[in-house]
Amino acid sequence: MIKVQTEDFDVGVELKALMARAQGVGGIVTFTGVVREWSGNQQLAAMTLEHYPGMTERQLADIEAEAVRRWPIEASLIIHRYGRLEPGANIVLVITASAHRQAAFEANEFLVDWLKTKAPFWKLEAGPAGQSWVEAKATDDQAADRWKVTSGPAKRRA
């Protein structure tokens, strides 16, 4: 399930709702991304997330479908917020539920890595030095590249 919204989310409420629609689950992994207070040596006042309505939902749905194709996931949820967010605020929630923990952990990490490099969101940070767009990190590309497969069953590269 995909949700792109300005409103905050409640992890407990979302977890319960997901468990209600999942069957045969033995392990659930929950990842929450929040706004950091510090960006380098600058204390952030706020962060504004811009996105591409339409393409965002499409990309997230594609990424989720890919996770379901690769791992035996019983249920999953991606919530990504946009708009103005203050330090400590929730940005993203990714929940993956499976019969066993390994698939839930791996699929969750895959979803976060892929959405960071594919979902069309852009962060604008505001601090004492003014506003600046966050630059994409090479380490995020490398993290996403770990999950590239050319053929055969999905296997995480060592």
């Binding site: 990504h80 594919k118 979902a119 069309p120 969101f121 767009w133 966050v134 994409a136």
Partner: peptide
């Protein structure tokens, strides 16, 4: 997503943006 060789034509929606930084 489209690379430099991808076709564009009438009625297409073409988006230009920097590398994404969500998550």
């Amino acid at each position: 997503y489209a690379g430099p060789e991808a076709k564009v034509g009438a009625n297409d929606e073409v988006a230009l943006f920097p590398p994404v930084t969500g998550g």
